[in-house]
């Protein structure tokens, strides 16, 4: 037996770490989804797919991406405890800190998203601003006319989207004190989940029927790959140390298992995968239900990983009671 009695009872630390509430999972989800949006719209531009339809969703989703990222950063800001000093993030670059990398990546992400959005100025904006956007429209048409410029914007978006998605995972996996996060493929899980949520969102708003089917098929591929990455994630944890094994058990059969199996795996992956497979095979019409479930699953994944990760601890390996 091992019995530990401590006189410490620091807020947010004891009895288990709970420093991050709803803000960080929301930020990680929105950041991951924007990363997916950048990769998908960047790929459409790079491959020339955007020329196939005047209604290509690759021109619409970046605008939504800017709004989602701003919301995510607002959530991140709300989480900070020393808000008046937030500007300090941009007075230095700490090479070992994933959060510092992320802060600077976010600075680059906004103009990259804006560049894609500016490639096609929405008709409603042209009417609303009555010719005041004439220069921007002219500039956007020139860029769109240049295959090299469009491809470059596509490549830059894919690269920055990849970095943003990777950062959302590395942010947690760099914190080795929490065994659940201490996985070298957490970034891959978050990137695939972000791609899946972004594909689901683009699928939901796509107007072109061919594009809708293409995005649904892509999303199905991402969802299947996500299940594969989950399997690798758990194998990695189970073969590391007792602390990591117990961390994996938190999700597989412990306190966080109901949320994980029901919201992340069941409602977030399996059910929408079945619905979308039926839709792409023409057995049922495309429905917004599946994309909404996929995005809900992506959000639930971040909540479960952030919450269970904070609960997982090296001391648990020495016999502290676990809630299962």
């Amino acid at each position: 037996m091992l019995e530990l009695t401590t006189t410490r009872h620091n807020p947010m630390i004891d009895p288990t770490l709970h420093v991050w509430g709803w803000e960080i999972p929301v930020y990680l989800f929105l950041g991951g989804m924007v990363a997916g949006i950048m990769i998908i719209s960047g790929y459409f531009l790079f491959s020339g797919r955007h020329r196939a339809s005047t209604q290509c969703s690759c021109f619409q989703v970046p605008l939504v991406g800017i709004a989602l990222l701003t919301l995510g950063m607002l959530a991140l800001f709300l989480d900070l405890e020393h808000k008046p000093f937030t500007w300090r993030l941009y007075t230095t670059f700490e090479i070992k800190s994933p959060m510092s990398w992320g802060a600077w990546i976010l600075v680059l992400v906004y103009p990259a998203l804006a560049a894609v959005a500016a490639l096609r100025i929405p008709e409603s904006w042209r009417i609303a601003f009555k010719g005041r956007l004439a220069r921007l429209v002219l500039f956007s048409e020139r860029i769109r006319g240049s295959a090299a410029a469009t491809k470059t914007i596509g490549i830059v978006n894919m690269l920055l989207g990849g970095l943003l998605g990777i950062y959302t995972g590395v942010l947690l996996s760099a914190l080795g004190a929490r065994p659940l996060w201490s996985s070298s493929i957490l970034w891959l899980l978050f990137v695939v989940s972000g791609l899946s949520s972004a594909a689901a969102f683009a699928h939901m708003i796509a107007r072109d029927p061919y594009e809708r089917v293409l995005l649904a098929k892509a999303d199905n591929g991402f969802l299947i790959f996500e299940l594969f990455v989950f399997a690798l994630f758990f194998i990695g944890l189970a073969s590391t140390s007792e602390a990591h094994l117990r961390a994996a058990q938190l999700l597989l059969g412990g306190a966080f298992a109901p949320a994980f199996w029901v919201f992340v795996i069941g409602l977030g992956i399996i059910i929408p995968l079945i619905v979308q497979l039926m839709a792409v095979n023409g057995k049922i019409p495309h429905t917004p239900m599946a994309p909404i479930l996929v995005m809900g699953g992506g959000l639930a994944l971040r909540f479960v990983i952030v919450s269970a990760g904070q609960f997982s601890h090296w001391m648990n390996a020495h016999g502290l009671p676990l809630p299962f």
């Binding site: 620091n10 630390i13 760099a174 914190l175």
Partner: peptide, 17 residues
């Protein structure tokens, strides 16, 4: 800035806000 990353990074839970 009070981001609390250091609190999560410490295996001894020695920090607080």
């Amino acid at each position: 800035i009070g981001c609390k990353a250091c609190l999560a990074a410490c295996p001894y839970d020695a920090r607080f806000v």
